[in-house]
Amino acid sequence: MGEVAKLIDVTKCTACRGCQVACKQWHDLPTETTPDKTKFAGSYQSHPDLGPNTYTIIEFIENTNENGTQWHFKKTGCMHCTDAACILVCEKKALSKLENGIVYRDMAKCVGCGYCAQNCPFLVPKVNPKTEKATKCTLCENRVEAGLKPACVSTCITGALDFGPREKMLEIAKNRVATLQQQGMTKAQVYGEKELGGTHVIYVLGDAPEVYGLPADPQVPLSATLWQKYGKPLGAAAFCASLGTTLFAFFLNRKKDLAPKLHHHEGGKSHGV
């Protein structure tokens, strides 16, 4: 299989959250806390954000205005970007790109530095303070390898989730957007086709990305690019230059008798080295 993608059609989601549970089941993830330790959220949303033991959540976005009430349900998780900031900043090569586009995480290599967590344009990876490993959606790369769909997709009732070759998912997404626009959702759009070099999780949105809390134009942070492409080589160069110079001076001066001597004269400039 070439590049794959998961399609999330938010206009079809009923927020049953089967995907959330299926994800935990497949990855054998515990709950984040127990109910008695959970603060009441004042909303139906189960977790305020993704967590080290929660790779996907449905965000409940509620809005009541003069046009009535809108209640959007947005599945949130790793976007599996082509230009993945997390891979760029991962010093341990724990994150890497598979041929099929999945951003693969190698838990053995991860040291939990959290660079990926902070640099992700969607703030997806989370560091587990107990295991000191950063976690995120794997797009069930092991299931995909075995010819299965990701756990969340296989449990989705309404067809809000789909999985397959990226080209096909894009085609479905575009057709769906055309239908939605015909039905009056003029701002319906595909999200993820071009963003960050093309993501491997593609959204069909019924409205502007900002409505769903998605950045309209996500970018690999400039700081990350400067850091990895320029900062690190520059720093290394400065270090090496200093090391080289010092070593050079060391060998140059090694045999010289430069120790200060007592000069018994009054004032004036001292000469020496």
Binding site: Q118, F239, S242, L243
Partner: peptide
Amino acid sequence: LVLWCYPLHSLLAPCLTAVVLG
């Protein structure tokens, strides 16, 4: 702030080391 501190930390460390070496 966090994002900009990564490159700064990462740049300062070797530069300072360079000075410290001398």
